[in-house]
Amino acid sequence: MDKTFNIVICGVGGQGLVTLLNVLARAAFIEGYDVKTSELHGLSQRGGSVEAYVRFGRRVWSPIISKGTADLVIALEEQEALNGARFAGKKSVILINRFQTPTLSGDASFEQIRQELTKVSEKVFFVGASEICQKELGVEVVSGIYLLGYALHNNYLPLKKENVIEAIKKTMPEKFWELNIKALELAKQSTK
């Protein structure tokens, strides 16, 4: 892989963005890539809009992703996809969790979000990650890992599954391994 691969993760504070970031960064590291990430912590993150970046490739300089250069956008909340899509271009893959929480400052409807995003990229996928995880696994906190699995199984992410599983084991306490690996595999069933 010659070009740096850029992933934007967006959602609201408390949805486990950093967990997802850690797994992605570790998997890329195991694969031998140079890796840089950036995340934000603190007050504005309490239930507020958050963005995190993961970049990997032969040599990565900046931890920040520039507008229009994301290869993959993972939105853990539907409305936040509008923020994440600012980093996207025509070829970017945009994966969106079909889950909404109120903004307290003017909400966007599913239909509006769908219409706007299809103008940005041809590869926009709404995935019922929260709902599926809740139904199949009894918890929705792993919906980010489910989306990661979705990206893997559809070849939207140039990483090997065994390395992602290894990364889960390296970055999480053992009691969460099984649940997260299940979430990762569960996504296989919804591969189109």
Binding site: V12, G13, G14, L43, S44, Q45, R46, G47, G48, S49, S66, K67, G68, T69, E77, Q79, E80, L82, N83, A85, R86, F87, A88, G89, T101, T103, L104, S105, G106, D107, A108, Q112, E116, L117, K119, V120
Partner: peptide, 18 residues
């Protein structure tokens, strides 16, 4: 610089834990 797409802006306001 690549032109970022025009999109409506949304902002989840930070809040006390719910």
């Amino acid at each position: 610089a690549p032109e970022p797409p025009e999109l409506s802006s949304v902002k989840h306001v930070a809040r006390f834990c719910t």
